[in-house]
Design a protein around this nucleic acid. Structure first.
Length: 352
DNA sequence: TAAACGTGGCC
DNA sequence: TGGCCAAGTTT
């Protein structure tokens, strides 16, 4: 049994309040039968994983301008794609993005598969993203369950079970509400509702299109849901970044291994990040320790990164990494923690 | 199942 | 300042 009335309320609200986003097809085009481009839907959904719309906008524009379709992206250099992703975080997404694009070209003739089941086999596409692409691009009534949907369902049905235990229960509730008509618009409607009305902290229940249906609002504790299990505290780790500038202006950088933290990204050679790391300079030099350190918080630990700088002669042969000429080095190509270290070094070098 | 995996904005 | 939070996936 489907809750038809609720999905119709939500779709009516969406028709009036849908946000105009670059990867969406506007109401007029949609009425004219124009479908969203699966490539743009896919790219936006990967970028939006655990990431806000505000952070994604400029990256989406840059990617679609430079690589307008999946074949173009599949043909790109790994380093160019990683550099273009720099700053957006969760870099495994960028590595899987390329893998997926190439797989779509080599195994699917350059067209995205059109079912949730087939989409699930592609790298970087999990249960959420497969449903989102299937519903939005291909009109399959797949149920989309992201953080927004979990929150809306927990409140609508006053689910007291904490996450992540409640996940299955919330998914079942979401399935019950998914309509066969306009499933893509419905999916985006729930997520828009969660992003703009049914927000985590202070939900705007007074203007919510579902306020008459919401059990938690009736009980007066919508803002307390969904409940969550307590999180583990983040430890603090320490490290040293080595920033070497050759006297012709080239910078010593290394491409990090594909696996693990910041995998595949360009960065300064560093020690390991631990309680008390052993010094590990990439070449012998007169290393100067900066007064300030770069502070950065990752998903599961805080990092305090000391920065050492050195100017080295043109004959230098580093143990690891390679020199990048000054004219081809852009700080924006670095992940944020590495850019923070560079900013400290650049400020010091300016003052010398 | 739980841990790994980024970053920026907000309060 | 520091914890919480955001359109999750992989191992």
């Amino acid at each position: 049994m489907r809750d038809t009335l609720l999905s119709e309320h939500l779709l009516a609200w969406y028709d009036r309040h849908a946000r105009d986003l670059p990867w969406r097809v506007g109401p007029a085009d949609r009425a004219a039968g124009i479908r969203p481009d699966p490539y743009r839907v896919w790219l936006s959904e990967i970028m939006l994983q655990q990431t806000t719309v505000a952070a994604v906008r400029s990256y989406f524009h840059a990617f679609t301008t430079r690589w307008p379709n999946v074949a173009a992206l599949a043909a790109a250099e790994d380093a160019d794609v990683m550099a273009a992703w720099a700053g957006l975080g969760y870099y495994a997404r960028a590595r899987n993005l390329l893998k997926c694009a190439r797989q779509v070209v080599t195994e699917h003739g350059g067209r995205f598969p059109e079912t949730r089941e087939a989409l699930l086999t592609l790298p970087g596409i999990g249960p959420y993203t497969a449903s989102a692409i299937a519903a939005i691009a291909f009109d399959e009534p797949a149920t989309v369950v992201d953080g927004n949907v979990e929150r809306v369902m927990a409140r609508l049905h006053d689910v007291q079970t904490p996450l992540p235990t409640a996940k299955k229960e919330l998914t079942a509730l979401a399935e019950r509400h998914t309509p066969n008509e306009r499933p893509g618009d419905y999916a985006q409607a729930v997520m828009d509702l969660g992003a703009t009305i049914c927000t985590p902290k202070s939900p705007a229940c007074g203007i919510c299109p579902l306020r008459e249906d919401c059990d938690a609002r009736r009980a007066g504790h919508a803002a307390e849901l969904p409940r969550k299990l307590p999180k583990k505290p983040k430890p603090t780790r320490h490290g040293i970044a080595y920033i070497a500038r050759r006297d012709d202006g080239a910078w010593l950088l290394e491409t990090r291994p594909d696996k693990g933290l910041l995998g595949g990204m360009l960065g300064w050679p560093t020690t390991d990040w631990s309680d008390d790391p052993a010094p590990a300079p990439p070449l012998p030099a007169d290393w100067q320790t900066l007064d300030a350190e770069a502070r950065h918080t990752f998903t599961h630990f805080h990092l305090r990164l000391a920065v050492q700088i050195a100017t080295v002669p043109a004959t230098s042969a580093p143990d690891r990494g390679q020199f990048h000429p000054a004219n081809s080095f852009r700080p924006a190509d670095l992940p944020t923690v590495m850019r923070k270290a560079f900013d400290l070094a650049a400020a010091t070098l300016r003052d010398l």
